[in-house]
Design a protein around this nucleic acid. Structure first.
Lengths: 211, 211
DNA sequence: CCGAAAAGTACACAGTGCTTACAACGGCGC
DNA sequence: GCGCCGTTGTAAGCACTGTGTACTTTTCGG
């Protein structure tokens, strides 16, 4: 890699974040070492600690970025107060939401685990203090989307929180499996995603085959 | 703890496994160190390597134990070839299966992550080579249980693998959430488990409210 | 009872996170 | 232009880790 470019004084913080992000993408984040990072960036190991109190702080920054990333994607699908106008739009959004969540896990394997796995637990709680992240969370999007189904006339009864929880949970499971175990190809994954969303909807009382 | 009892020569291997198992239960398995273990067991750090090639080997042993444990629990619910005799038995088994899986995750937090999380990935693949573990896996149990629903007359059509996969996936999600994020009390968890299984069945076409 | 195999010890090496004392850089007022 | 001073980076060191090697002790079968 072209890490040979001597980085300017003051750029280390961003460089470290990029480095960790890169490591995350390549999947070896849990064995990343600050010393090696410093070496790769052509800087002394102590310099790192000018910018991050400890290793966890750097990882936390990565987790934070991940949560902002996923938040943005979810927000793009169902912005705050933007109720679906038609039935087909409501359904389409459900599929896009499921696909987004599952694909995020599939593509961001290592980051996903820092965000939702046990290791990043304290990170997550810390990161989630951020008021901006607490305002309209992915779970909120999921909830509103489910209520949209009712608003738009696809669900007769008003949904409950249990409906939302189940959808979230089932999608989470599909995401976790898509990423962890079965190294399935994209085609297969596409099918799984579709199937998952269809059944999620069925589980809250919306049978897509009957409309 | 009463580790003061000097352990007899030759007992180190079992003692190490117990130690790691204990650490797993207390939840700090990922920071467990072999040196500290050796110290706690009153033995030199090199001695460990007489019994385990490296740290991963010890952890792998723990994962193996975990998989045998969960396998046993599943097997108790639906032994090989033991088709459910009645409708209510088939349904009851479904609930017991879901409860077992989710509670296992809830109670064995750290172990769960070694078994299904990203960190223990190579461990899992290695462990799963064991022919005994491959014979009638938890997933197999889930499959047979789903087919039992058909055999017993609760499902009109013969289930597909997609039906099984979804049930597995949705239950997995509930298990992962039960353990990772929401520190819910037991009562709440009970409800979630029930709700999850009911909806899983609904998603494969079995509405418990209509029988 | 004795000698070989198994179990445990002592020590060393390289790598890690992190701290502390120091050096260099750069923007500020004068 | 110049000195000041806070920010950034360096060098060296501590305590810890996993792991290898050479040694000693224990145990047990012939």
């Amino acid at each position: 890699m072209g890490e040979v470019v001597k980085l300017k004084r003051g750029d280390l913080r961003d460089a470290l974040i990029d480095y960790a992000l890169e490591a995350t993408k390549e999947g070896h984040i849990e064995v990343m070492s600050l010393r090696q990072a410093a070496r790769d960036l052509g800087v002394s190991s102590g310099a790192v600690y000018r910018h991050f109190a400890d290793k966890d702080s750097l990882l936390m920054e990565i987790v934070r970025i991940g949560f902002f990333d996923i938040r943005e994607r979810f927000y793009a699908i169902r912005p705050e107060d933007a109720v679906a106008k038609t039935k087909s739009e409501a359904i389409d959004r459900c599929f896009r939401l499921g696909r987004t969540y599952i694909m995020f896990a599939f593509e961001n394997n290592a980051l996903w685990h820092m965000m939702f796995g046990r290791v990043g637990m304290m990170c997550r709680e810390e990161v989630m203090q951020d008021p901006e992240l607490r305002r309209y969370t992915p779970f909120d999007v999921c909830r509103e989307l489910t209520f949209d189904l009712h608003r738009v006339g696809l669900l007769e009864r008003e949904p409950t929180l249990a409906d939302v929880r189940y959808q979230w949970s089932a999608t989470h499971g599909a995401a976790d499996l898509a990423q962890s175990g079965a190294r399935q190809d994209h085609e297969q994954l596409d099918q799984v995603i579709d199937d998952t969303v269809r059944r999620n909807l069925l589980a809250v009382g919306l049978d897509l085959d009957k409309i």
